[in-house]
């Protein structure tokens, strides 16, 4: 008994610093934010009396759209990041140890420069006179030429035709250049977010892939599977934990991001992060900003919790099914 208390004590002592840290700098601030939402605000930027005024203010018709847009863009960014990170991590894990270090280093290299500087650099890359814009325009024209014949597909078209650069000479394929710059658009936000968050997706997947036994892929091919089938059915489930962490590592910061939409999204891509920033820093309405933050956290955590609950339930159901099947198999096996 004495030994047990002793080990309990050491356990407590070792976890105490991190626990204290988390309580002080995570749990307490989160609770403060939550508490702020039940306060009004004072005109000079302070936190007012206890009230439900802030929550009532949240019934802004703009917010559902912005929340939905934020979730949609974060989802897009996450999907792209995972899709790009998977082959990337696979390739790195299959490299020789020397190259592995070099490539892993190259992926982390951008972190040595300031994030804001990098986003600003993208502004130059996406300048309306730049090559990326030209590529984007070419794509839009191609899309227009191809899809304008299909009923029900809408492509942004403006009556006022821009001079000269019309593909295939179709009169109706005039594209509104003012509205279709790549900068200040959703595409810019998604593109640069993918660029920014990609290393966060690659690293956890790579860590999992490094531990993956690649002879399993050989076994799968030996049993008749094509390369992609083996990748999908053996590799992806084998590194599933890495993918889950990558999703969290990308999705959560993407939901909260405001620098990228601020600098590259213009007025076309205002996300919840920008709104929170605006309420807190420009309007000095801390309770309102807190309420938005709480709302966003709920919008992420509630579905995540539901998903976790659903997976656990499904796993339990599967297990019951398997037990049943085994019992069945045993009984028929006995009869045969």
């Amino acid at each position: 008994m004495g030994v047990r208390t002793e080990s309990h004590k050491t356990e407590w002592l070792t976890t105490l610093p991190s626990l204290a840290w988390l309580t002080l700098f995570f749990a307490v601030p989160a609770l403060i934010v939550l508490a702020f939402t039940f306060h009004g605000h004072t005109p000079n930027g302070g936190v007012g009396e206890w009230s439900l005024a802030t929550w009532k203010e949240l019934v802004d018709p703009d917010y559902p759209t912005i929340v939905w847009k934020t979730l949609r863009i974060s989802f897009q960014v996450t999907v792209w990041c995972i899709l790009l990170a998977l082959p990337c991590a696979y390739a790195i894990a299959r490299m020789g140890t020397r190259w592995r270090g070099v490539v892993a280093g190259a992926i982390m290299l951008p972190f040595w420069t300031s994030f804001v500087v990098r986003v600003f650099a993208w502004k130059t890359v996406m300048h309306p006179d730049g090559w990326l814009q030209a590529v984007y325009h070419g794509w839009l024209h191609a899309k227009l030429a191809l899809f304008s014949w299909i009923p029900g597909v809408s492509v942004p078209v403006l009556a006022d035709p821009p001079p000269g650069n019309c593909l295939l000479g179709f009169a109706h394929c005039a594209i509104d250049t003012a509205r279709t710059t790549i900068i200040d658009s959703e595409i810019a936000v998604v593109l640069v977010s993918v660029y920014t968050f990609l290393p966060f997706a690659i690293m956890p997947i790579y860590t999992a892939a490094e531990k993956f036994d690649f002879s399993l892929l050989e076994a799968a091919r030996d049993l008749g599977a094509k390369n992609f089938h083996a990748f999908r059915k053996i590799f992806v489930p084998g590194i599933w934990q890495g993918i889950v962490s990558a999703v969290l590592m990308v999705f959560i910061p993407a939901v909260g991001s405001y620098v990228i939409p601020q600098m590259l999204g213009g007025t076309n891509c205002v996300l919840i992060g920008n709104k929170i920033f605006m309420r807190a820093m420009q309007q000095r309405n801390i309770p309102h900003a807190s309420a938005l933050a709480t709302l966003m956290a709920a919008a992420v955590l509630v579905p995540l919790g539901l998903a976790a609950w659903w997976t656990r339930r499904a796993a339990a159901r599967d297990r019951r099914k398997l037990e049943l099947r085994t019992a069945q198999l045993m009984s028929t096996g006995g009869q045969r």
Binding site: E218, A219, R221, D222, L223, I234, G238
Partner: peptide
């Protein structure tokens, strides 16, 4: 390998853990 009807029993078995 996937186009030959030749299968291998690997030394480490290579059973799919998932």
């Amino acid at each position: 390998p996937n186009q030959r009807r030749v299968h291998t029993v690997f030394q480490n078995y290579a059973l799919f853990p998932t």
